[in-house]
């Protein structure tokens, strides 16, 4: 077997996600050349980056075989808490660091419940998300200055470095870091192993609980940071600001080629998923399609994407069957002598 081919085959779903994104982009550009303008591309990158932040932790959690439904509330938490602290004079970089740390702590609670208390991920993250929501509703009332987004968040979200938006660069940095984490560190390997089979991982000496805990923690941190940036872009924050990102974060992971059961996928695939979703939503108006159509198209993209990656998995299954799944002792033992 050719190692280059193996490498490509291993990443075929990621490659397919980028191909899909490129095709959509090409279609939109052919239809209306303004789609490929610098300002539009910048806009697309900024919008995609919000999905990207929300889906960063989601990718890690799903890769390890979990699911994080608290993402939208953590995004709201990022914006509102920072805004709240800023009015109390604790904004700036320190504020961001603290709020992201707090988000990580909330993620820690998710991870603890899932890994140690063995609460199903859907339930644990749903409950924690609800508690965060309740907390935000309570501080929302106290926040007298309105929910103005802090300056620092605004500048991250809207500044540019040359022609490139700062958010996009930050996102790129996150993507590189996540890519390195997943492919070049022991933790990354353990995340994949845990998601592929926690039994095998445990028997191979992986501390599955700790791995899960870390993924939820990172998810909490990334979503909170995403929320800060998003609030900066919007200019103000409100409690439902993260709502669309529950669906978007999971959809980006799935369209990016990861398996919802864990163990397969990459963050670079999710990046492609986030770009695809963004391009789709931006191009539909060109074809006089509205939000309703967009939702329908999203659904179809998810189902078709999964069907395609299942075809690949089936091919694997076939060859696995060739590996002999039943255990009869070898008959030849008798005769070979």
């Amino acid at each position: 077997m050719n190692p280059v081919l193996d490498y490509l085959r291993e990443r075929r779903t990621t490659i397919a996600a980028y191909a899909l994104c490129a095709v959509l982009f090409a279609i939109a550009t052919i239809h209306s050349s303004g789609f490929a303008s610098a300002s539009n591309i910048r806009q697309l990158l900024v919008f995609a980056s919000f999905i990207g932040f929300a889906a960063l932790g989601q990718t890690l959690v799903i890769l390890a075989g979990g699911l994080d439904l608290s993402v939208p509330w953590l995004m709201a938490f990022g914006g509102l808490q920072l805004s709240n602290w800023t009015t109390h004079g604790m904004g700036g970089v320190l504020g961001i660091v603290l709020v992201v740390a707090a988000g990580a702590a909330i993620g820690l609670a998710n991870g603890y419940g899932v890994a140690w208390l063995r609460v199903p991920p859907i339930v644990m993250t749903l409950a924690v998300g609800g508690l965060v929501q309740a907390y935000l509703m309570s501080i929302g009332q106290l926040n007298s200055s309105g929910n103005q987004a802090p300056r620092i968040a605004e500048s991250i979200a809207t500044d540019r470095l040359g022609p490139i938006p700062v958010v996009a660069l930050v996102w790129l940095g996150f993507a590189v870091a996540a890519g390195v984490l997943l492919s070049r560190t022991a933790l990354g390997r353990r995340i994949y192993a845990t998601g592929a089979s926690d039994t095998v991982a445990t028997l191979s000496g992986v501390n599955v609980k700790r791995v899960r805990l870390v993924t939820y923690m990172l998810s909490g941190a990334a979503a909170t940071f995403g929320g800060v940036v998003l609030s900066g872009y919007v200019g103000s924050t409100y409690i439902d600001i993260g709502a669309p990102y529950l669906f978007a974060s999971i959809a980006a992971v799935i369209v990016g080629g990861a398996s919802i059961l864990g163990g397969r996928g990459t963050y670079w695939g999710t990046v492609a998923g986030a770009l695809t979703l963004t391009v789709l939503s931006a191009m539909l108006p060109l074809f006089h399609l509205d939000t309703a159509d967009l939702e329908i198209v999203y659904g179809i993209v998810i189902l078709v994407g999964v069907a395609l990656s299942r075809l690949g998995a089936n091919a694997l299954q076939m060859s696995r069957r060739g590996g002999g799944e039943e255990k009869p002792a070898d008959p030849e033992v008798v005769d070979v002598a």
Binding site: G299, L303, V306
Partner: peptide, 20 residues
């Protein structure tokens, strides 16, 4: 299909139809 993924897809499709 995994139930979660299948119904995630149909959810938005049905939502879209309702919006139409």
């Amino acid at each position: 299909f995994e139930p979660f993924v299948a119904t995630l897809g149909t959810w938005t499709i049905f939502n879209g139809l309702a919006l139409k």
